[in-house]
C-alpha cells in the first residue's frame, strides 16, 4: 500500500517536472522548438497550460458550493464520493452480470455461440446514444438518477468481465477436468472447486479494467444525464468556463484521475488478499 502511494507520488513529480520544463521551454522560444522556427504542438500560454503550481494551488482555493464556501479539493472530494457510489454499483452489478453470462456460456455451448457476438457488438453502441434512453426509461420507472447512471456504468463494466471470465473458466487442462470426472463431481462442484479458482488469474485483470471503466461510465453518465452533482457535473461546469479559469478544469481532471486510481487500488488490494488465502 505504501509502495503504491509512493509510486503514485513519484509519477506525479515526473509529470509535474515534464509539464513545467516544456512550458518553460515554450516561454523562452515563443512556442517554437529550440533553434528552429517550427511551432510546438501545444502552445504554452497560461490558458492552455497553466503553471502546475497554480493548478495545485487552485485545489486549496475556496469555491462556492450552494450557500457554503469550501476549498476546491474538499468540493471535488464530495463530488467524487457521489460518483464513486455510482461507479461502485456499476462495478458490482456489471461484474455479477459478466460472470453470470460467462457461466451461462460455459454451461451451454449454444449460449456461447448465440451470446458472444452480441456481447461484442454491445460495446459499439455509443454512450451518448445510450444515456438518454436509459435516463428516460429510468425516470419513467421512477428510478433515481443515480440508478440510471449506475446502469450506464454497468454497461461498460460487464464486458471485460464476461469475456475474461469465459476464458478463465475454460482454462483448466483436460487432465484436471478428467480428474473431477473420475470423482463423479457434478457440473456445479467442478465449477466451484476447479473452474472458478482457475479463472482467478484471468478475473482480476478484468476487474481492474472494469473498475476504471466504471468510473468512466459514471462520469460520462452524469454529463449526458445532466445531474445536479458528481464529478462529471463539476467537470462539465469547469469545462464551460475553461477560458477564464483553466486551473479548475485541470484540478477536476486530477480529481477524476485520483478516483480512477483509488478504485484500481482497491481491486488490487482485494486481489492480494484473495490470492494469498490458501484453500482447504
Amino acid at each position: 500500500m505504501l509502495r503504491m502511494a509512493l509510486s503514485v507520488l513519484a509519477a506525479l513529480i515526473v509529470i509535474f517536472s515534464l509539464w513545467e520544463s516544456y512550458k518553460w521551454m515554450g516561454q523562452q522560444t515563443g512556442d517554437a522548438w529550440p533553434g528552429t522556427s517550427v511551432e510546438l504542438p501545444v502552445s504554452t500560454d497560461d490558458i492552455i497550460m497553466p503553471h502546475a503550481v497554480d493548478i495545485v494551488g487552485e485545489l486549496f482555493a475556496d469555491i462556492r458550493d450552494g450557500r457554503a464556501t469550501l476549498p476546491l479539493i474538499v468540493f471535488l472530494a464530495k463530488k467524487a464520493w457521489f460518483t464513486f457510489q455510482e461507479a461502485a454499483i456499476g462495478f458490482f452489478l456489471g461484474s455479477a452480470i459478466g460472470l453470470g453470462l460467462a457461466i451461462l456460456m460455459l454451461r451451454w455451448r449454444f449460449a456461447e455461440r448465440g451470446l458472444l457476438p452480441w456481447i461484442n457488438v454491445s460495446q459499439t453502441i455509443p454512450l451518448i446514444a445510450l444515456a438518454p434512453i436509459v435516463v428516460t426509461w429510468g425516470r419513467h420507472q421512477n428510478l433515481p438518477d443515480i440508478a440510471s447512471i449506475a446502469l450506464i456504468s454497468t454497461f461498460l463494466t460487464f464486458f471485460p468481465v464476461a469475456v475474461s471470465a469465459l476464458r478463465g473458466l475454460q482454462s483448466p487442462t483436460p487432465e484436471h477436468v478428467e480428474l473431477m470426472r473420475s470423482y463423479a463431481a457434478p457440473w456445479w462442484t467442478t465449477l466451484v472447486k476447479l473452474r472458478l479458482p482457475s479463472a482467478r488469474p484471468y478475473l482480476f485483470p478484468a476487474f481492474k479494467i472494469a473498475a476504471t471503466l466504471s468510473v468512466v461510465g459514471a462520469i460520462v453518465g452524469e454529463i449526458s444525464i445532466g445531474t445536479k452533482t458528481g464529478l462529471g457535473r463539476a467537470t462539465l461546469e469547469f469545462a464551460q468556463r475553461y477560458a477564464v479559469w483553466p486551473e479548475r478544469l485541470y484540478a477536476s481532471v486530477i480529481g477524476s484521475a485520483f478516483l480512477g486510481l483509488t478504485v484500481f487500488g482497491l481491486v488490487t488490494l482485494v486481489e492480494r488478499r484473495v490470492l494469498r488465502r490458501a484453500e482447504g
Partner: peptide
C-alpha cells in the same frame, strides 16, 4: 486413479490437494 501427469491444483496446498476427493 493416478494419472500419468500429477495434475495437482496449484492453488491448493499439498494437504488440501490430498483432501480434495474427501471434500467431494
Amino acid at each position: 486413479m493416478v494419472f500419468q501427469h500429477p495434475g495437482l491444483f496449484d492453488w491448493r496446498r499439498v494437504r488440501a490437494n490430498i483432501e480434495l476427493p474427501l471434500e467431494l
